[in-house]
Each structure stands twice: as C-alpha cells, then as structure tokens.
C-alpha cells in the first residue's frame, strides 16, 4: 500500500485513529461533521530501568563509559550513566528513533554536500551497532590493548577527541558523524523528560535550573531578575513523589 513506507509510529497513529473514528474508509465515504472523534493521542509510557532492549552488555558498558566522559560526575551533577543516559539511548534505539521511522529512506543514496543533510542508508540502530564494534576493535587491536570501556579516562578522552575531530580512522565508519549523533543522544538522555529513562531525578534540569514541564508562569512574567524558587516537575514525575529509580 502507498502508506507502507510511513514508519511504525505513523501506522500506530493511523490504526488508532482508525479505531477511534470508526474507519478511515467510513470517513472517506463521507461521514458528516457530527462524526468527529478525537482523543486517540496519549502520553508516552514511563521507561523502566533494568536490562537492555537493544544493547549487548558490552555495548551498554561502552555507552556508559562514553556518557561518563561526555558528562562526568562533578559538583554540578551525577555522571551521564548515573543520569540514565545509557538506558535512555538503549530504549530509543529499540524504538522508532532507532529504526528511522518516518524518515525518507528511498534510494539512491549518495554522499552529497554537507549542506544537503544526512544521506546514510543505515538506521541509527545499525550505525550504533557497527560503530561501537569498530571502536572496540580499534582499542583492542591497537596499542591500547583493551576495550574502550576498560581504558582509563584520559585514554577514553583521547578517543572521543579524535572522533569529534573526525581523525579517528575506523573502517567504513564516519567517526565524526557518529560522535555528533552520540553526543546529541547523550544530551537527550541528560535533558529530556525523565519519562524517557534518562535525566533521572531531573539532575540535568536541576544543574541549569530549568523547571521542566511547568506550564503557568503568569505570576512570574514581570518579576524580573528574581530567582525562580520552585523545583522542576516532569510529565509523570515530581522529585517529591517518587524515589529515584535504581540503575540497571
């Protein structure tokens, strides 16, 4: 069917609306305006920590190691992995993001110019799997002699710096593009709503003073230059309501 290329999420939405409206055929056949039916939208489910849905234990250890160098534990916040970054990325990669659902994935694929945007035929899930293996091989086979997760912090930082600069030569992998995706996803795991499995206990929001999903600042719009006193809240969470989830 023509809609066959739309991603899983689109299909999910379509099928939900199908049930709610009574059938898109029915709508197409000319139901009048008294037949409106809405309410098929919903809040995302709360990600639960524990286990891995995409990563192998070795991959998960690598992601945790990356997260802890990109966002180290210090006075400002716990580390990336303590904030749930690895859980967040794991759940994203086994979901619609990892499969690139909704993106235009028709061939031919060509490299193009940087300004023409990403042109990879690989999904994020495939890119993570392939690149993590390549990085680990690079570390084990090179003069480092250990996998990435087992290197000391300074050695890990060297690898990350080389990836960021695009100078880490990995077979068949653009290390710079992967770094950009990994760092973006790491920040998401630190700053997105805790419902997605990261930003545990809202540590990312607390670090900068973002109040999260609050929706009414009418009493504050003209109180200029004053610290906002209330703690952050999440879509399904408030620091006072639930203890921080235990880490996997």
């Amino acid at each position: 069917m023509p809609g066959g290329n739309w991603g899983r999420r689109q299909l999910l939405i379509s099928s939900l609306s199908f049930l709610a409206i009574g059938a898109s055929h029915a709508a197409a056949a000319g139901f009048d305006s008294s037949q409106w039916s809405a309410g098929w939208n919903h809040m995302p489910p709360q990600v639960q920590p524990g286990g891995w849905t995409f990563f192998s234990p070795e991959e998960a250890a690598m992601i945790a190691a990356f997260a802890d160098r990109l966002i180290p534990a210090d006075d400002l916040s716990p580390s990336g992995s303590q904030a749930g970054v690895a859980v967040y990325i794991d759940r994203q990669l086994s979901g619609p993001f990892g499969q690139d659902t909704g993106l235009y994935m028709q061939p031919p694929f060509a490299d193009g110019l940087p300004g023409q945007g990403p042109q990879s035929p690989l999904t994020p899930a495939q890119r993570y799997r392939k690149t993590l293996a390549a990085i680990d091989q690079y570390c084990k086979n090179g003069n480092l002699g250990k996998g990435f997760a087992d290197l000391d912090g300074a050695a890990q930082d060297k690898i990350i710096t080389a990836m960021e600069a695009g100078t880490l030569a990995l077979p068949g992998v653009n290390s710079k593009a992967f770094f950009q995706m990994l760092w973006q996803n790491t920040k998401e795991g630190f700053f997105a709503d805790p419902i997605y499995g990261g930003n545990v206990n809202m540590v990312g929001w607390k670090m900068i003073g973002f109040p999260g999903a609050r929706y009414d600042y009418r009493d504050w719009i003209d109180r200029h230059n004053e610290p906002f006193p209330l703690p952050p809240i999440g879509l399904a969470d408030h620091p006072d309501w639930t203890p921080p989830p235990t880490q996997s």
Binding site: Y104, M105, Q116
Partner: peptide, 24 residues
C-alpha cells in the same frame, strides 16, 4: 514525515539535488 513526502535540494543548477531525508 519525510517518508510521506519531502523535497530534494541543491544550491544551484549544476548540482544534483538530494532528498531531505530528515527535516531540518
């Protein structure tokens, strides 16, 4: 969704346009 429909882009007539696979 780009999968529904997207555009291809090039800067000038000499280039080959490529699809915007992800809107930006």
């Amino acid at each position: 969704r780009p999968a529904q429909s997207t555009v291809t882009m090039r800067n000038n007539l000499k280039q080959t346009a490529l699809p915007v696979r992800k809107f930006g």
